[in-house]
Amino acid sequence: MTTQTNETYTKPLPEADPEDRPYWESLKRHAMEIQRCSECGEYTFLPKPLCPNCLADALVWTRVSGRGTVWGTTTQSHPPLPSFSAEDMPFNISLVELAEGVRVCTNVIGCPVEDVRIGMEVEVVYDDVTDDVTLARFRPVKDQ
């Protein structure tokens, strides 16, 4: 759906590091992966070099469900950067707690901003914002 390149897209883009490249690659494949420790079983996010729970060098990129609930929700009413235009406003920014227990910062889309509630069930929507970068936004799960 996108034809934007990293050069023409004006909003901030992530810069992949060796530690977190697999995360961004998983989004690009539309198959979100989060690190899970094969020693203690804990998921961790943001990406880390070792398991922060047990310090094992045993973090494995693991496919996650893409389902979660809204843990905190805010409405951005004011362009956070000049590259966000009046047409982008207002938009939702939420912290979504994935079913696997970790939280991600994201946008809940697909419903009016005033309808987003803490506890709302949501699912991932992959947004290919450029040819190289995919973001993980979320939308309400139907029939909740």
Binding site: P12, P14, P80, D88, I93, T106, V133, L135
Partner: peptide, 18 residues
Amino acid sequence: EDYEQPYGFMVGPGHHAF
């Protein structure tokens, strides 16, 4: 920042609004 700003989240007001 790589996990927040692409979603339009900026430090300061964004954090405290949560």
